[in-house]
C-alpha cells in the first residue's frame, strides 16, 4: 500500500516543486498538483485553456520517458514506455470536465491570485478525487480556463483563505466557506482533526511526505514547539492571508568564521510549500547576502557569491525561545561558477519556502490556529505515528508562545534592531547550539548579548 508510481525527471535543478499526484473524475484523469500550504483552493487547468494552447507552437513536443519494472514471484520484467504531450500543461496534467460523468459545475466564479500575481480563473465545480488510497466524493475545486500557470495547485491552508471569501467579497456576492482538502478529509471521516504534518525530506531526496491527521515522531529531532498563528492574517484587512507566525530573530551559523546575528527585528512569516524561494524583509535579505560577500544581481533578483562561502553554513531563525536551522546550500542555485541565493527581499510579504522547509518539520493545526515546529530528522528511523485528536502529540508551547510580538496591519516590521554584523570567534559548530554574538547596533551604540540556552535570549529593543 506504500508503493507509488514515480516519474523520473532529469535533475537540472533550479526551482524544484513538491507535488502530489491526484486522480480527478470518472474515469479518473491524472494531474500533478503543487502542494501549497500558502493557499486554500485546489485548482486544475482545463485542457483547452488559452494559456495552455498558446504554449503549443506546433514544433515542440513534451516527452516523458519512463521505465516500468514489475516483479512478481519468480518473474521479473522491465519495459520502457514513451508518451508524448502537446504542451507543458498536458505534461503536468489537465482536467476535461466534459469527459467526467461525475463532474458538476456549481456556477460559482473561481479566481485565485497569488503573491507573484500569477492567477487561475474559471469556475468552481465538484467531482470525486483520489490521492493514494483515499477517495473524496463531491470535492470542490476550481477548473481554470484562464491562467498563466501550466501546473495545478492543491491549496491546503485555512478555510478563511479560500477564494470564495476573497473574490466573492469584491463581486458583491456573499463570502462562504466550503470543505477544502484538509476539511474534506475530516468531514468525510478520514482524519479526526484538521491538522497535518509536512516533511519535505533532505535536498537530494526524491520524495517527502505529508501526514494528515497525525504526527510522525521519527521525522524530527529535539522538541516540537508550538506557536500561535497571527490573527492579523486571517482578516479581510490584510493584503496576504494564511498561517503566519512570528519570527523573532535571524542568524547565520558558520563553523569556520563564527556565528552572527543578522537581525533581531520581529516579522510575520508563513511556511509556504508552494514556492521554493523565501522572501524576507529587505534589510535581512540584504544582510544575509552581504554576509557571504555577495553582490546583488538585479537580473537574477538575488545575491551572487562564491559557492564555497556557504559550505557548512546554516540560516537559523528564532521563533520565540527556540531556533530552527536550515542549510544554506538548500537556498542556492548554481550559476556558472558562482551561486545565487534564492532569498528575495520584500517589504510586505515574508515567507519561508521549500529551502527552509526541507530542514523543518511543520505541523499545521488548522482548528486550533497553531503551528508546531521542530528540526527535521533524516535518520530513516521506523515510523512513530501518533494521531492528532486534540492537541498535537509531543508538542509543547514555545517559551515565547504567550509573549510573542503581535503584528499590526500596516506595520510590517517589528520593534527590534537590525544588526551591523561583526563576526565572533567561536569555532564550535552545532545547528542546535544557541547563538553567541557580539554586535554593534545600527544607531552606533555598542552593546553585546549572549545566551547559553534558548530560554535566556537577551533581546534589545528600539522603539
Amino acid at each position: 500500500s506504500d508503493a507509488f508510481n514515480s516519474t523520473l525527471i532529469n535533475m537540472f535543478a533550479s526551482a524544484d516543486r513538491y507535488v502530489v499526484e491526484m486522480e480527478i473524475g470518472t474515469p479518473p484523469q491524472t494531474a500533478y498538483l503543487v502542494l501549497d500550504t500558502g493557499s486554500s483552493d485546489m485548482c486544475v487547468n482545463e485542457a483547452n485553456n488559452t494559456y495552455c494552447e498558446s504554449l503549443a507552437d506546433g514544433n515542440d513536443v513534451w516527452t516523458s520517458n519512463y521505465e516500468l519494472t514489475a516483479t512478481a514471484s519468480e518473474i521479473s520484467s522491465t519495459a520502457t514506455s514513451h508518451k508524448t504531450y502537446n504542451t507543458p500543461c498536458s505534461y503536468w496534467g489537465t482536467f476535461n470536465p466534459n469527459t467526467s460523468s461525475t463532474f458538476k459545475f456549481n456556477e460559482t466564479v473561481f479566481n485565485a491570485t497569488y503573491g507573484d500575481n500569477s492567477y487561475f480563473a474559471g469556475t468552481y465545480g465538484t467531482d470525486v478525487v483520489s490521492l493514494g488510497n483515499i477517495t473524496l466524493s463531491n470535492f470542490t475545486f476550481g477548473v481554470s480556463d484562464d491562467t498563466v500557470n501550466s501546473m495545478g495547485v492543491l491549496g491546503i491552508s485555512l478555510p478563511f483563505v479560500e477564494e470564495t471569501n476573497i473574490f466573492q467579497l469584491t463581486s458583491n456576492t456573499t463570502p462562504f466557506v466550503y470543505d477544502n482538502f484538509p476539511m474534506a478529509l475530516k468531514n468525510q471521516g478520514k482524519i479526526k482533526k484538521i491538522a497535518y504534518s509536512l516533511f519535505l525530506n533532505e535536498l537530494n531526496a526524491r520524495f517527502g511526505s505529508i501526514l494528515f491527521g497525525a504526527v510522525d515522531k521519527s521525522k524530527y529531532s529535539g522538541q516540537l514547539y508550538t506557536l500561535p498563528m497571527l490573527q492579523a492574517f486571517n482578516t479581510f484587512d490584510s493584503e496576504f492571508s494564511g498561517m503566519f507566525v512570528t519570527a523573532q530573530s535571524v542568524a547565520i551559523l558558520d563553523s569556520k568564521s563564527g556565528n552572527k546575528t543578522v537581525s533581531e527585528v520581529q516579522f510575520p512569516v508563513v511556511f509556504d510549500s508552494g514556492t521554493s524561494y523565501s522572501s524576507l524583509p529587505t534589510e535581512i535579505a540584504d544582510a544575509i547576502g552581504r554576509s557571504f560577500d555577495g553582490k546583488y544581481s538585479s537580473d537574477n533578483r538575488g545575491y551572487i557569491f562564491d559557492c564555497s562561502k556557504v559550505n557548512n553554513t546554516l540560516l537559523s531563525i528564532d521563533f520565540g525561545g527556540f531556533n530552527i536551522s536550515a542549510n544554506i546550500s538548500n537556498f542556492v542555485t548554481p550559476l556558472h561558477e558562482h551561486c545565487l541565493l534564492n532569498i528575495m527581499a520584500s517589504d510586505s510579504m515574508f515567507s519561508l519556502g521549500d529551502a527552509f522547509l526541507m530542514d523543518t518539520y511543520v505541523v499545521y493545526d488548522l482548528e486550533n490556529h497553531e503551528v508546531s515546529l521542530a528540526q527535521a530528522s533524516f535518520n530513516n528511523e521506523e515510523e512513530d505515528i501518533k494521531i492528532i485528536s486534540d492537541s498535537v502529540p509531543g508538542a509543547t508551547p514555545a517559551p515565547g508562545y504567550s509573549s510573542t510580538w503581535v503584528y499590526t496591519p500596516g506595520s510590517p516590521i517589528g520593534t527590534g534592531d537590525f544588526v551591523n554584523v561583526s563576526w565572533t570567534s567561536y569555532s564550535e559548530f552545532s545547528q542546535y547550539k544557541s547563538i553567541y554574538a557580539t554586535e554593534s547596533l545600527s544607531d552606533g551604540v555598542s552593546s553585546s548579548s549572549s545566551s547559553s540556552s534558548s530560554s535566556e535570549t537577551a533581546t534589545k529593543k528600539k522603539n
Binding site: N10, S14, D16, V19, D36, G115, S238, F240, S273
Partner: peptide, 28 residues
Amino acid sequence: NSYVKLPIQKLANIPNINLEDVSGISKR
C-alpha cells in the same frame, strides 16, 4: 487509521518546461 499519509514527489525544473515558481500565498 484516522490518518492519511501521502507521498510528495519532488519535481526538478526541466529546461523549457516552464515550471513556474508560483508564490503560493493567496493575495487579496
